[in-house]
């Protein structure tokens, strides 16, 4: 009986969004009378940072500071249509819709500015600080604040735009089954090191090293935050968490935090995160969906590390001490 060490590796290829019956998300953008911009969405921010990212995307597209953009995700009954925040699709789908809406709003904004400055709209550019300048003659300029006032009170124009991003449904070819379930894939690779006590079946994850390829990191700190949390969650899924321990039998399913195991701050593995940015062709400013996939590769990596340590394949999650001991016993017989 001994503590045995093992190391496991796993790599994943993760689609951004799902091949639903067509996968649409819609966004609306409009300016307030004082030149702030409002993005209306039905995509929900549940802590992953949707609002921040959509504000950045809108600001970048219109050419204003991010803090001039307010994102309203209030109500799926009244907001523009979104399939939902799941399958890591939020940034990709909603971001593209916001870009389209913001471009249309920007065009109206430049047209109003052009009338005020008596120039051609195509000769104008934004400085990202809240001003619109004549290209090559920046002394001739107008603030977006004044443009919005003019649009609202003088010219009767709505500085607004509509955006719709749709990934059409992909049907498999009858002959080959070939299809295109997604247009954009993120990737990850994890190496996990574990110790397995072959007497008690207990697994301790010592280190977990992750590389994530996520397209462009639109907000690097928030990407890191999500990857760190996700890496931990992957280990938690590998070793502890389940609602149905005897699936498909519902018996003994955890009903509260006394029975549903969630690791606490004392159960952390040494974690390393490396981000590779390879901008995606169809993502908003090159982004992909890092959301769900950040909690995936740790699971097979831990399973492989357990195999490396004690020579048994546990193919049911979570990899509990009981399952390891049963597998060791079966192997011995």
């Amino acid at each position: 009986m001994a503590i045995r060490r093992g190391r496991g590796v796993a790599a994943i290829n993760y689609p951004t969004g799902m091949n639903l019956g067509g996968d649409p998300t819609q966004a609306l953008v409009h300016s307030t009378p004082t030149g702030n911009f409002m993005v209306t969405l039905s995509s929900v921010d549940l802590g992953q940072g949707m609002k921040q990212i959509m504000a950045q995307i809108c600001a970048e597209t219109i050419g204003v500071p991010t803090d001039c953009v307010v994102v309203d995700t209030a109500d799926t009954d009244t907001g523009p249509h979104c399939m939902g925040t799941f399958a890591s699709r939020g940034t990709h789908r909603a971001g593209n819709a916001v870009i389209q809406a913001a471009k249309e709003a920007r065009q109206v904004m430049l047209e109003v500015a052009a009338e005020e400055l008596e120039v051609n709209a195509s000769d104008l550019e934004t400085d990202g600080q809240g001003n619109i300048l004549v290209k090559g003659a920046p002394q001739k300029s107008i603030s977006i604040f004044d443009v919005a006032l003019s649009a609202h009170f003088k010219r009767g124009r709505s500085i607004s735009g509509r955006g719709m991003f749709l990934i059409p449904r992909s049907y498999p070819e009858k002959e080959t089954g070939a299809m295109k379930p997604s247009t954009c894939y993120a990737h990850a690779c994890t190496v996990a090191e574990v110790e397995v006590d072959d007497e008690t079946g207990e697994v301790t994850v010592l280190t977990v090293k992750n590389v994530f390829e996520i397209g462009r990191a639109l907000n690097p700190k928030m990407v890191e935050q999500q990857l760190v949390g996700g890496s931990w969650m992957g280990i938690s899924h590998a070793l502890y968490e389940t609602t149905e321990p005897y699936y498909p039998n519902r018996d003994h399913g955890g009903t509260d935090f006394n029975q549903y195991l969630m690791p606490g701050p004392g159960d952390l593995a040494e974690t390393e995160i490396i981000v590779l940015e390879r901008p995606s062709a169809d993502g908003p400013y090159g982004a992909k969906g890092p959301g769900e996939m950040c909690a995936n590769p740790q699971i097979p990596a831990v399973a492989n590390a357990v195999f490396d340590a004690v020579g048994v394949r546990v193919d049911t999650l979570p990899i509990t001490p009981e399952r390891i001991l049963r597998a060791l016993k079966a192997q011995a017989n």
């Binding site: 935050q225 931990w232 969650m233 606490g264 701050p265 974690t271």
Partner: peptide, 16 residues
């Protein structure tokens, strides 16, 4: 770690 051990978090992985 000891002081936070009675608090669980779904999102952050605790390290932050």
């Amino acid at each position: 770690v000891e002081a936070l051990s009675g608090n669980i978090c779904r999102c952050t992985g605790y390290e932050p």
